[in-house]
């Protein structure tokens, strides 16, 4: 007969069993995502590029937002790619528990695996997209530099924030399904509160305070850091425009959100099986 297996919950997050399960769920999600579409995985690339094309025509060519920022098209592309990553991550993550309810009702395993696996497609997509960004940057005449190595740090920070929001709101969404819809509206509003399409200088020209407030937002901080490290020093980061203190405040927000979300998720996850 075969080896005996232990079905009781593994407290170790990274135990072999949990990693295998996470791997299988990620594979399944990725396979099913583009099921039945002709271009398949290519959509992961095409979607942000099309979105970029629209924004480029409207904001760089018609409205001429670029101003004095060098490599503005790439700058814009980075913004959209990173923003899309954040939105995709949270929207998949928040609905993860509710969508995998069939599993939770029938088998016992660490619930966070479901949320992490739901956000994994967004992670894979952003990694592919960053490669595209780098190709565009080189074509546009950006010189490679050592500061590129800092980009993953900002991505990790943003993922921590997105995962925190997913765990937190996802746990509440199990009982109150309105949360998912509310979050969609909030992301719409956030899109304009984050300097994705407009440069920070447009805001700081009229109000320095408003620019500072915008930059405390960890999403804005991460996007601006990536832009500075990847493309141009002309990107206004939280650290140099608002001040070092604001930079740390923004990182503090991420840590706080993640810590609270883990606490809330742990508490609520005991009852997911009966509520979902």
């Amino acid at each position: 007969m075969l080896e005996y297996k232990n079905m009781s919950i593994d407290s170790n997050m990274f135990s072999k069993k949990n990693r295998v399960l996470l791997g299988e769920l990620v594979k399944t999600d990725f396979k099913l995502r583009y099921q039945g579409s002709v271009l398949g995985y290519l959509w992961a690339l095409i979607k942000p590029l099309l979105m970029f094309a629209i924004l480029y025509i409207v904001f760089a060519k018609i409205l001429r937002f670029g101003g004095n920022i060098p490599h503005y098209p790439v700058y814009l592309l980075v913004g959209t790619v990173i923003w899309n990553f954040f939105v995709e991550c949270t929207q998949q993550g928040i609905h993860a528990i509710e969508q995998r309810g069939d599993l939770l009702r029938k088998i016992n395993f660490p619930k966070y695996i479901v949320v992490v696996s739901a956000t994994s497609t967004a992670v894979i997509n952003v990694l592919i997209n960053i490669c595209v960004v780098i190709i565009f940057a080189l074509l546009n005449g950006v010189t490679p530099s050592l500061s590129w190595l800092f980009v993953p740090l900002s991505l990790i920070e943003l993922y921590a924030l997105a995962l925190g929001i997913s765990l937190w709101l996802g746990a509440i969404n199990v009982k109150y399904r309105d949360i998912g819809s509310i979050w969609e509206v909030i992301t719409q509003a956030l899109f304009y509160a984050v300097p994705v399409i407009y440069p920070v200088s447009m805001v700081s020209a009229s109000s320095m305070l408003a620019a500072k407030v915008i930059l405390i937002n960890p999403i804005a901080q991460a996007i601006q850091d990536i832009r500075e490290n990847l493309i141009t020093d002309a990107a206004a980061t939280t650290w140099d425009t608002a001040g070092i203190g604001f930079g740390w405040l923004s990182i503090g927000i991420v840590v706080a959100v993640l810590a609270i979300s883990i606490f809330v998720f742990k508490k609520k996850s005991k009852h997911f099986a009966e509520e979902v």
Binding site: L21, G23, D102, I107, F109
Partner: peptide, 27 residues
């Protein structure tokens, strides 16, 4: 509690076996 937990109609038989196995804790 139920047979075939996590079975997905869009996956092949083979893929479903491995997915179900992972849910039951097999590597």
């Amino acid at each position: 509690i139920e047979l075939g937990v996590g079975f997905n109609p869009e996956l092949t038989g083979r893929e479903n076996v491995y997915l179900n196995g992972a849910l039951l804790g097999f590597s």
